[in-house]
Design a protein around this nucleic acid. Structure first.
Length: 586
RNA sequence: GCUCCCGUAGUUCAACGGAUAGAACAAGGGUUUCCUAAACCUUAGAUACAGGUUCGAUUCCUGUCGGGGGUACCA
């Protein structure tokens, strides 16, 4: 029922085209989109240019005919521009009507999807043996935001933290644990001791093949059910989970499930058996592998690769020559589980783009096993240092996430001391935590997920410009107005009137919320929502400077209060979809 | 070698195939007896290169150059 302005205009335009004699099939392809530049109106359509070409007519002549037959009265003014664009300039009263509608609308103009999907969202997935580092924020923050947006749009989203609790790093930790564990250190600071053990094995393994081999053997023993290794593993996981939970609480991220790789252990043999039975896997160099299906061109085949000698096989290993399983096996078992137990129709993996080949192989094998599933790798770029080079996971020198969050909080605390209106120290501390973490999250979400991301803590916590605090501040400014309103105002009964440019523009931005949120899921791009919110906040701040609210004559005042209230609600909702909360004062 | 991703102002980032490529930071100039100046207003400044498709290309295709990733027992 909540039709957006773009949809309403599209309907009017199609009716006009029908009146010009175009048939249904043609009308289906006609769209109306937001204009990038307001000089060309609010919305535009290229229908006349497209249709004129097909009908071999003059586009501007066709446009003239369409304008004559299209009724946009009460909604917009139509004009023809450039090579034949149909531009719609929305009338202030139409915006006013829309804003009044938002006033009583819980969903703020965002329609529910007509066909809800059951979507499994796999994100964050840190390794359990190590503390979270900055490299984990992309998946965690993007995934969390996508889950919130998916749910708001009406999808059934199942979030799952697919912990790395069963891989090679555990062979390393177990090996080092047996050799070097310091019980006292473990009791004093379990995560630090676990990290020490991991590094010991990691560094040792780099230099010494014997150590690498020993670690692999410990892993195989663990995976085959060795009691001692399992006991060590259980203890390690317990410590790690407590540390991880603390981070997720701070980040405000929750999961429906924490099903780590280990929970699929008993399924692995079955997966492998079924692959063999289906003729999909065979042995090669001691390992069990899935090879190319032979369909398609070799350069598009994830199982083929060209080396100097020509095209060679590039198989996916499902069992190593030492008998251990690897994560391809686990991922296949995980797909089985998600389909069988959760009825998944779609699975999204929010994972680093470096794993794209793995996912291409995985998805192809799933297809060959007969699944008709929508599988998507929501990949993202690398985190870079200020030198422009990737922060390498293996260096061991990545800043830990906890330190980053603390630094952000502390930087926010300094700014608060300088500028805040608050005086209570505890309140300032809480605000610092909120603003610091919001700033980190928003920095992440305002970037296109595919671009490499320069990690610059100073800029992240600068707290000015295109940042979360800018948005939060605009919310605070609105709330401040409402604390000073005298008397009760029934906003739903107000006649909204838009006179000033700043009012019209703010209304325009408010109305666009309903057109913005749904497109985020088209290509899994929270940054589109982040960008929209910045633009909305900018419109509000300009309005705030140009249009006094409380001092205005009552009718104007009430109309502006509606704009203010709707702005606050859209900001609050939009930020919450990004996983960011708003303060009442700052 | 093959393959995937990325090349946009000095810097960090935007831009469903649309019109004169938007912001922010940094730089310059202004705004506060007035609802929170973490703000507003304002001045400068960019699509790596060469072709192609198109009425129209930052966007799609081809090639070149540059950066990063992946390329069988790591995840």
């Amino acid at each position: 029922m909540a039709m957006t302005l773009a949809e309403e205009l599209k309907g009017r335009l199609r009716a006009g085209l029908a009146a010009c004699g175009f048939d249904e099939a043609v009308l289906e392809r006609v769209g109306v989109s937001q204009s990038a530049d307001l000089r060309f109106g609010d919305y535009q359509s290229n229908a006349a240019m497209v249709l004129a070409k097909e009908a071999k007519q003059n586009p501007r002549a066709l446009a003239e005919a369409v304008v004559a037959k299209t009724d946009v009265s009460g909604l917009a003014e139509m004009e023809i521009a450039g090579p034949g664009f149909l531009n719609f300039r929305v009338l202030p009263e139409a915006f006013a009507k829309r804003v009044a509608g938002l006033c009583g609308d819980e969903r703020l103009g965002v329609a529910q999807v007509t066909e809800p999907e059951r979507i499994v969202l796999d994100f964050s997935a840190p390794n359990v043996a190590k503390p979270m580092h900055v490299g984990h924020i992309r998946s965690t923050i993007i995934g969390d935001s996508l889950s919130r947006i998916g749910r708001f749009l009406g999808h059934e989203v199942i979030t799952d933290n697919h912990l790395g609790d069963w891989g090679t790093q555990f062979g390393m930790v177990v090996w080092a644990w047996k050799k070097e564990l310091n019980r006292e250190a473990l009791e004093a600071d379990p995560l630090a001791e676990l990290l020490r053990l991991y590094r010991l094995a990691s560094e040792g393994g780099k230099a010494d093949e014997v150590i690498r081999e020993a670690c692999r053997k410990e892993l195989v023993k663990l995976q085959q059910g060795d009691a001692e290794n399992f006991a060590i593993w259980t203890e390690c996981v317990g410590y790690s989970l407590r540390g991880l939970e603390r981070m997720y609480v701070r980040l405000g991220v929750e999961f429906d499930h924490w099903k780590g790789e280990s929970s699929y252990n008993e399924r692995l043999q079955r997966v492998v058996d079924s692959l063999i039975a289906a003729g999909l896997a065979r042995e090669s160099n001691g390992a069990l592998c899935v090879f190319s299906s032979g369909e398609g061109k070799p350069e598009e085949d994830p199982f083929r690769i060209q080396k100097k000698e020509g095209w060679e096989d590039n198989p996916m290993l499902v069992r190593k020559s030492d008998g251990g399983f690897n994560y391809a096996t686990t991922d296949l078992a995980t797909i089985d589980f998600r389909v069988e137990e959760w009825g998944a129709k779609k699975i999204l993996y929010v994972v680093d783009h470096r794993q794209s080949l793995h996912f291409r192989q995985l998805f192809d094998v799933a297809r060959r096993r007969g699944y008709d599933l929508d599988l998507a790798h929501v990949s993202f770029g690398t985190i870079l240092g200020k030198d422009g080079k990737p922060l390498k996971t293996r260096s061991g020198d990545l800043p830990q996430l906890e330190d980053v969050l603390n630094d952000a909080r502390d930087a926010a605390r300094v700014t608060i001391e300088e500028r805040s209106k608050l005086d209570d120290a505890a309140e300032k501390d809480a605000l610092a935590e909120l603003i610091g973490i919001s700033a980190v999250k928003f920095t992440e979400l305002s970037h296109h997920r595919m671009s490499d991301y320069v990690f610059d803590l100073e800029k992240m916590v600068a707290l000015e410009g295109d940042t979360a605090p800018y948005l939060q501040y605009s919310y605070v400014r609105v709330r401040s107005i409402f604390r000073k309103v005298e008397g009760e105002v029934d906003l739903k009964a107000v006649a909204v009137q838009l006179e000033e440019d700043a009012e019209v523009h703010l209304a325009r931005m408010l109305v666009r919320f309903g057109e913005t949120v749904p497109v985020v899921l088209d290509d899994y791009r929270p940054n589109l929502l982040a960008t929209y919110l910045l633009e909305l906040a900018r419109a509000f701040h300009s309005f705030f400077e140009a249009c006094p609210v409380l001092k205005a004559e009552e009718g104007v005042r009430n109309s502006r209060l509606v704009l203010c209230d709707t702005t606050a609600r859209v900001l609050e909702k939009g930020l919450s979809l990004l996983g960011i909360a708003v303060p009442e004062r700052m």
